[in-house]
């Protein structure tokens, strides 16, 4: 008996230390992974980035001719514009719909309907991006040709709609959580002052939940920027500065996906694709940084 007790008290600090160590490792691993990815992507592209690549041309030229025999050009400007334009278009569609749906689900619909909606929205989030690409390639393609009398339906509009459909579930679920996190006492107090449901939402809940709503929008945007397969299939995948929603475009991500399998490891083209990777990494980093600063700014204001 005495021995047993001794053992258990001796074990307790050890298990405690072990668990603490494990949890510590889990936390540190996420940092290691991020730095690891950045390090390896950077290492693959660094040689050409600091020796040979004309960075001015890379950022401003629209000529993307990595496989030309006598006139190789690495101008990614059209790709950058492609990524941004399709993301902005997608957000123009997804933000109003996503936030609207979140407000409806959280504030205006009956509890039963809410459960049904949440299941459907989660289902929507689980659809693989290649399926969205397929829908864009077939269904939406035909629809755009019929509706807009366009020669081809694989356009920025097509990709934008697909990206919007993919971002909406993320925006809805995070925004809904943010609205649900607003204490009910705010709703009661505002209702007691004679405010209608919409006035309560507009004047109290939206300001109170603005951090979460902003996070929802930014995560939706991040999803759009990073998405590859759907835009590869739905946007026409053609290097072009878009003149409108019915232009075809090519994005940074789709370029990496389409070309990386075709290049010889280590040559210039290969390295440029990794430099695009660095660029994407930088863009997402900046978006996250801005989000953090904005949220911090809002907090300080409060």
């Amino acid at each position: 008996m005495n021995i047993l007790r001794k053992k258990s008290t001796a074990n307790l600090p050890f298990s405690e230390t072990a668990i603490e160590l494990f949890i510590r490792l889990c936390g540190i691993s996420s940092i290691i992974f991020v730095f690891g990815i950045f390090f390896f992507v950077f290492r693959e592209g660094a040689g050409f980035l600091f020796g040979g690549l004309d960075l001015g041309q890379f950022l401003t030229s629209v000529e993307w001719q990595p496989t030309s025999l006598n006139n190789k050009r690495y101008g990614a400007f059209a790709l950058i514009v492609g990524t941004f334009s399709v993301t902005v278009l997608a957000m123009c569609i997804a933000v109003p719909f996503g936030l609207g749906a979140a407000i409806f689900v959280s504030e205006f619909c009956s509890p039963k309907l809410r459960e049904a909606f949440k299941i459907i929205i989660e289902l929507l989030a689980a659809i693989p991006s290649v399926v969205w690409g397929f829908i864009g390639l077939t269904l939406m393609n035909q629809l755009i040709i019929t509706v807009f009398k366009a020669p081809i339906g694989l356009t920025m509009l097509n990709g934008g709609i697909m990206l919007a459909l993919m971002s909406v579930p993320i925006i809805v679920s995070i925004a809904e959580d943010a609205l649900k996190a607003v204490p009910d006492s705010y709703r009661e107090a505002a209702e007691a002052l004679g405010a209608t449901r919409w006035q309560v939402t507009y004047r109290v809940l939206l300001p109170a939940a603005k951090n979460g709503l902003l996070a929802a929008v930014l995560l939706g945007a991040a999803r759009s920027i990073g998405e590859t397969m759907a835009v590869l299939m739905a946007t026409g995948h053609s290097v072009n500065i878009p003149s409108g929603p019915l232009s075809w475009i090519r994005t940074l991500t789709a370029t990496i996906a389409a070309e990386l399998g075709e290049v010889a490891r280590g040559d210039e083209h290969y390295q440029v694709l990794f430099i695009i990777g660095i660029l994407l990494f930088t863009i997402t980093f900046v978006v996250n940084l801005i989000a953090d600063l904005v949220i911090k700014g809002i907090r300080q204001e409060q």
């Binding site: 505002a190 004047r203 109290v204 109170a208």
Partner: peptide
């Protein structure tokens, strides 16, 4: 709006002091 209600725990709406008081008139 014809009835003023004060609840047990004070609920300052997450708005400025001014906007808190101006809430009902604005609605």
């Amino acid at each position: 709006r014809r009835i003023g209600m004060v609840l047990p725990l004070p609920v300052g709406l997450p708005l400025s002091i001014y906007d808190n008081v101006a809430f009902a008139p604005r609605t």
